[in-house]
């Protein structure tokens, strides 16, 4: 079943570049409308509306405190929204967090494996809490170890691994139960470019298999690897589109330049309103948010 859908999404990727907002046809797996989260008087995420499709690699850019992590935490069911709507894999974030949790993988900024357990113990544990059977776990464990080239180190303590391997192992365990959607919150911070490259190879691989990948980052060259990126500032999505579109839109040659222009707010008044349609009604340049409301 997955096979056919895989090819379907692989095809859609190419089209996504031209028009990522073909709505219904693209098999939306994450959908938010006016999603908001307040902490006291501070609004961390302010009325964000998004649609993300199957197999899409969706990037969150933004300075620290722009609301990326809060956004991801709400979508993962770690944080209750203060307002708005959101569904993830067809499940409602308010009422069906159990359903969401079965269908997502998550990797946070912080290293999330148990350092005092061995590599294989970590893999087996995470397989266990996702309800995988022992023989399944063994197969996937061996595949993961092989991919990382860590077969010989399987019984070593995780704390003794170099950081790059730790991060890749964390990604591997987040994917172990074959989730539909993966949320990666700044997964590559602190690793060298070579490891980052290997990381992105895995991400593209998973996208081809039909997995949706949400990734927040502050490395601008990583934004270029995404199918679509959104730039957040003060809790709002102020720019959204494929890297090519954004560059064209703002007349810049790199996403970095687009980001500096958009996120610094220097020209946000002009560019933001003209293109992103202001903050409140829609996240995207086109009328998607409008349709929803």
């Amino acid at each position: 079943m997955d096979e056919t859908r895989m090819t379907g999404t692989a095809g859609r990727e190419a089209g996504g570049e031209n028009d990522p907002r073909t709505g219904r046809a693209m098999d939306t797996v994450v959908r938010t409308r006016g999603l908001t989260r307040r902490f006291g008087s501070f609004t961390a995420v302010d009325g964000v509306s998004l649609d993300v499709g199957r197999g899409e690699i969706f990037g969150f850019l933004g300075a620290n405190g722009a609301g990326k992590t809060t956004m991801i935490r709400m979508l993962c069911g770690l944080l209750m929204p203060s307002g708005g709507e959101a569904t993830v894999a067809g499940f409602d974030v308010y009422r069906e967090s159990e359903g969401i949790k079965r269908n997502i993988g998550y990797m946070s900024q912080r290293f999330s494996l148990y350092e005092d357990l061995t590599i294989e113990e970590n893999i087996e544990f995470y397989g266990g809490i996702y309800g995988l059977k022992m023989d399944e776990i063994r197969v996937r464990r061996d595949a993961l170890l092989e991919m990382l080239g860590l077969q010989a180190e399987a019984r070593k303590l995780t704390r003794d691994l170099p950081l790059g391997f730790k991060q890749r192992l964390a990604l591997g365990t987040a994917l172990l139960h074959d989730p539909k959607i993966v949320f990666l919150d700044e997964p590559t911070s602190g690793v060298d470019p070579r490891v980052r490259r290997a990381f992105w190879d895995v991400i593209h691989e998973e996208s081809k298999k039909g997995k949706t990948v949400f990734v927040s980052t502050h490395f601008m060259e990583e934004a270029e690897y995404c199918h679509r990126v959104s730039i957040m500032r003060d809790g709002k999505v102020i720019a959204l589109g494929s890297p090519g579109e954004l560059k064209r839109e703002y007349g810049r040659s790199t996403i970095q330049d687009v980001f500096i222009e958009v996120a610094s707010g220097r020209t946000a008044a002009g560019g933001g309103e003209a293109r992103a349609g202001g903050s409140g009604d829609s996240a995207g340049p086109a009328g998607k948010g409008g349709e929803g409301s």
């Binding site: 079965r102 809490i129 996702y130």
Partner: peptide, 14 residues
Amino acid sequence: ETGTMEQLLVSPVR
């Protein structure tokens, strides 16, 4: 402290 609790919370573990 280490962040593994968060990892448990996004899993189906109740």
